[in-house]
Structure formats: structure tokens, C-alpha cells
Simulated scan of single mutants.
Amino acid sequence: MVMVDWHEVRRRVRDLAASPLAAKVFGYHGHGFQLDPVLRPDELAELEQQIKVRLPDDYRDFLLHVGRGGAGPFYGVFPVERIDGRWQWVGDGADLTDLDRLDRPFPAEGLDPTVLEALRAEEPDEETFEDIESFDTAYEEWDRRYEAVVWNDARTVGALCLCHQGCALREWLVVSGPERGNIWTDHRVDDEDLSPHREGDLERTSFATWYLSWLKAAEAEVRS
């Protein structure tokens, strides 16, 4: 596990927020290098009781010592908020998180490539239809079948949607199962499957590595 001084991380983020060059960094206009208030230990305990799973240690430390959300990779880390007595993550795509199934193992094996290939091969070709109405009907039917497989809710149980890259591209943090603690990238909107997020030569990326890599790159961008 990466050893992190999270209080120092918070200071570094605040330094970036104070820089007149901070707007150079991608995603600045989404988070402005601002951090939401940290969670109190009792709030974190209530959150974990509600979702029935202990969050990965590095992410827990982030929530307790840096912020419950805010400045971070791409357009920032989705904040976790207590709404009508229920803790939940808030942001563009955060509602994809199944709060009632975060304690189920994340299905890391992904889709069988042949299933995706077969679905894509069946996508209707407009040129083979006599009129646009017939094509639209056929395409809508195919799209329903495609989404029922690719966007099935069962594919992301045990993970929380933590960040968006823009254009419906998102990042997930796995909290249950063998992939617990790792970040997964979601490019399904571009017809790519869910896959482990990679930093350099690493095959798996923890929350701490993901966040610190972004912070280091942001500082380098401001210095340049």
C-alpha cells in the first residue's frame, strides 16, 4: 500500500487553488481546486453502516483528512453527501452507483468479447433499409438489446462511480471483491468495455496512486 501524508496532500491542493495559473489544468473549471469539508469519523461510520461495506483504507483517509469530494482527476472526485438521511455520491453519473449492492463482489471478468462482437455485428445499417422509419425502428430495438447487456446494472455492483472525464466517460472505485481498492475506467459510451485504470506500467491503480498521480501532474502543469 502507498503510504500517504493526507494532510500534506490537502495543503498541496490548497496551494494549487491559490495559484494564478491553476486554470491551465484540465478539469479546473469543474472543481476549481476546491475541496469539500472532510467527513467526521461518526459520519464515515454511518456511511459504511448504510452501504454495509468498509471503504478502501486510502479512500477512507482521503474522506477523513482531505475532503469528502472536490478537486481531483479530470472534473474532480464526486462528493459523498447525506441527503434525506441517506449517504450517497453526487455528480454526473454518480447515480449509476447501486448503493444497495456495494457489498457484492465486483464482476471483474468483464463481458465475453465474442458477445460484444456479435452484438456489434447485428447493428442495423441504414443503407439496407428502404426508408428511415424502418431503420429507426430496427435500430431502437437493437439498441435496447445492446444496452441491456453492456449497461446491465449487475456489471458494476461492488463499485462506486467516483469521477467523470466528460462525454459520459467515468471512473469507478471497486469496494468489494478481489478488485477491492482499484480504480476501473468506464468507456462503454465509446463502445469499449470496463477495464482497470492504468498508471504507467502498473496493471492496477489504487485510489491513492490515482489521486497522487493527478496531483503531481497538476503541479507540474502549473510550474510549466
Rank of each mutant, 00 (worst) to 15 (best):
S134D: 14
W151K: 13
A168K: 12
R144A: 14
V25A: 09
S206W: 03
D143T: 00
S206G: 14
V150M: 01
D190C: 14
V80S: 08
D57A: 13
E8V: 04
G30M: 10
A45K: 15
R104V: 11
D5K: 05
L173P: 10
D193A: 09
P20S: 02
D61Y: 07
V90F: 03
R12S: 06
Q49H: 13
Y139H: 12
P37I: 09
R14W: 00
H29L: 10
K216D: 13
F106Q: 10
L39P: 08
D5R: 05
D136T: 15
L202W: 01
R144G: 01
C167T: 02
D95G: 12
L55R: 05
T205M: 06
G76F: 01
L35W: 02
E126P: 02
D95F: 12
P124N: 03
L35C: 03
L63V: 06
T209G: 09
D201Q: 10
E127P: 00
P37A: 14
D190Y: 10
G110V: 09
Y139E: 01
A159Q: 10
F135Q: 04
P37M: 11
L102C: 10
E48L: 07
R145T: 00
L194Q: 05
T128P: 02
V53K: 05
W210C: 04
D95R: 15
D15P: 00
A18I: 01
E127C: 03
E130D: 14
N152Q: 04
D125P: 00
P105T: 00
E179L: 09
R54I: 06
E43W: 07
W87N: 08
R12W: 02
Y139M: 08
R68H: 02
V90I: 15
W210I: 02
R198H: 05
D143Y: 13
G200S: 07
A22F: 00
R68G: 04
G67M: 02
D61V: 00
D143P: 00
W210G: 03
V2A: 09
E141C: 03
V157L: 12
R12L: 05
R198Q: 14
E81K: 14
E109R: 15
T205S: 07
D98A: 13
S176L: 08
R223T: 03
L96R: 15
R170G: 05
R188G: 11
E179P: 03
G85A: 07
T185D: 04
G67A: 04
V174P: 02
S213R: 10
F33W: 11
S224T: 09
E126A: 14
R120K: 07
E46K: 11
D112I: 11
H7M: 07
M3L: 13
Q165E: 13
R40F: 06
Y211S: 04
G177E: 09
R198E: 06
T128C: 01
D193M: 08
L39W: 11
K52R: 15
V2R: 14
P107T: 13
W6S: 08
R155C: 07
D92M: 11
R145Q: 06
C163T: 13
D95V: 13
